[in-house]
Amino acid sequence: MQYIAASVHMNASEILNFFDNRNTNASMESLNTKSEDFRASQRGVNDNTFSYIG
């Protein structure tokens, strides 16, 4: 129970931000998923300058 309380206390500003502003990180998660899908689709491509993502 202490672990849950500590986690909530550490992340209280982010948790409350959702209720205050309805902001989430869903758009960044979506962008991350798209970049991972692109990288996965480029397996076997020999032109690394085309498919390079930092």
Rank of each mutant, 00 (worst) to 15 (best):
G44M: 03
N46L: 15
D37L: 06
S35K: 14
D47T: 08
T33H: 14
R43M: 02
E36M: 10
V45P: 13
S13T: 06
G54S: 05
M28F: 11
F19T: 08
M28P: 04
V8G: 08
S41G: 02
Y52P: 05
N48D: 12
D20A: 15
Q2F: 06
N11W: 03
Y3W: 12
E14A: 13
T24R: 07
Y52T: 03
E36P: 02
V8M: 10
F19L: 04
S7P: 04
A6G: 12
F18T: 02
G54Y: 09
G44L: 01
R22W: 01
S35A: 06
F38T: 13
S7W: 14
D20S: 14
N32M: 10
F50A: 13
R22M: 11
D47I: 06
L16R: 00
R43L: 07
M1P: 14
T33M: 06
N48C: 13
S27E: 11
R39I: 08
Y3E: 13
S51Q: 05
R43D: 09
K34E: 02
N21F: 07
I15D: 04
G54R: 04
G44Y: 01
M1Y: 10
N11G: 00
N21Y: 15
K34L: 05
Q42P: 02
N23D: 03
N21L: 12
D20M: 15
A12V: 04
G44N: 10
D37Y: 00
M1E: 12
E14V: 10
S35W: 12
R39N: 08
Q42F: 01
R22Q: 11
N48H: 12
N23V: 03
M1I: 05
S7Y: 15
S41N: 01
K34Q: 13
A26P: 03
F38C: 13
A26L: 12
H9C: 09
T49M: 08
N32A: 05
E29H: 05
M1V: 00
F18W: 00
E36K: 13
N25E: 05
S51T: 07
N25S: 09
G54L: 01
F50K: 08
T33D: 09
A5N: 01
A40K: 14
A26F: 08
R22L: 09
R39G: 07
E29A: 10
K34V: 03
Y3S: 08
V8A: 07
E29Q: 08
G54W: 00
T24L: 03
S27G: 09
Q2G: 12
D37V: 01
N25W: 01
T49I: 02
A26C: 13
F19V: 06
I15E: 03
M28T: 04
N32K: 13
A5E: 08
S30D: 10
M10Y: 11
V8D: 04
S27M: 09
F19N: 08
E29I: 05
N23A: 06
Y3P: 07
N21W: 10
S35Q: 10
I15Y: 02
E14R: 06
N21M: 06
I53D: 03
Y3L: 14
Q2L: 14
E29M: 03
L16K: 09
S30K: 09
N25F: 05
N17T: 04
N48P: 11
S13M: 02
A40S: 15
M1R: 06
V45H: 15
